[in-house]
Nucleic acid binder design. Structure first.
Lengths: 151, 151
DNA sequence: CGCTAATCCTATTATTATGGTAGGATTATT
DNA sequence: AATAATCCTACCATAATAATAGGATTAGCG
């Protein structure tokens, strides 16, 4: 149960993954929600901040849908997750200064949580949507190097 | 809000941190909860799995309390967190095979979540309680090397 | 022995977060 | 005009979280 990503971030990446595969064409949330067995209304709520942040563009009306606003190589998983879920701060005491007796400034454990947050950000920021759609059926390394290798 | 550690894991590390500082002597939860402004009853629930997992020893009665069952250098933050919160699996689709249409086996995003989980485990497992109590007031590197440096 | 301080154990509860549903308004294509 | 899509707001059911409450047991101390 610890360090879980909620479905918002999970589904956001799935939707962006689908849009990246469509490469320019507009895809409707109805199609995506049907294919992935997700609630369309829920996806609408999730896509909204992505649109407001300029990651996707919505086109209304018949034949409309969503498309990436930028190239798949310029959108990282970290940007997607932080856009729909907020900054990655595993333990609140790192961000604010409430409960000074519980978590005083000199508490060495704080640096643990900071390092965890940075480690998560590093992984998420190192992976672009292009990495995800490249070599779809293979499990080999991406062409860019060791950023996305399974080890 | 994503990748958050609940208070269970947070408080568990705080308690273990206090026990490590006491170095062998039994510390009561009443003292710890008073000093850290935490609920004693809640801490009791949190310490229980730590005792059952053999990380701490409880001593009942007058003058009793809890003490580390092993050396502080042999207990990692990762072990503490996983004991009270369970394994670190950021996205469930990595662990089970429900929703095969939502998260098919060939979904490349799965490897992202796996890498995140491993990165978290790596950080948590690299830090022992001894690392936390050493050089308490300093922000320098630990004597063991670059495992716990602020960068 | 009896008092007290502690762990140990179970049940309940208030609050919050999660994961949606419902219903509609707007826009664009055919 | 019909339809298919985004866009927007509100509400809600469930589950997880973070405790609280109340007691039973055990051990030291006078």
């Amino acid at each position: 149960m610890p360090f879980r990503l909620s479905t918002r971030g999970h589904y956001a990446v799935l939707v962006m993954y689908e849009l990246a595969k469509s490469d320019g064409a507009y895809s409707s949330l109805q199609d995506i929600s049907t294919a992935r067995k997700l609630s369309q209304g829920y996806l609408e709520q999730i896509v909204r901040p992505l649109r407001e942040a300029g990651l996707v563009e919505g086109k209304r009306g018949f034949g409309g849908g969503y498309a990436l606003a930028r190239s798949a190589s310029e959108i990282t998983v970290g940007e997607i997750v932080r856009t729909v879920e907020g900054p990655i701060v595993p333990v609140q005491c790192v961000a604010d200064d409430l409960h000074p007796e519980r978590c005083p400034d000199d508490c060495r454990a704080k640096s643990v949580w900071q390092k965890v947050g940075q480690a998560i950000d590093n992984v998420l920021d190192s992976i672009t949507l292009e990495d995800l759609i490249r070599e779809e059926t293979q499990d080999a390394a991406s062409s860019k190097g060791d950023q996305f290798r399974d080890e």
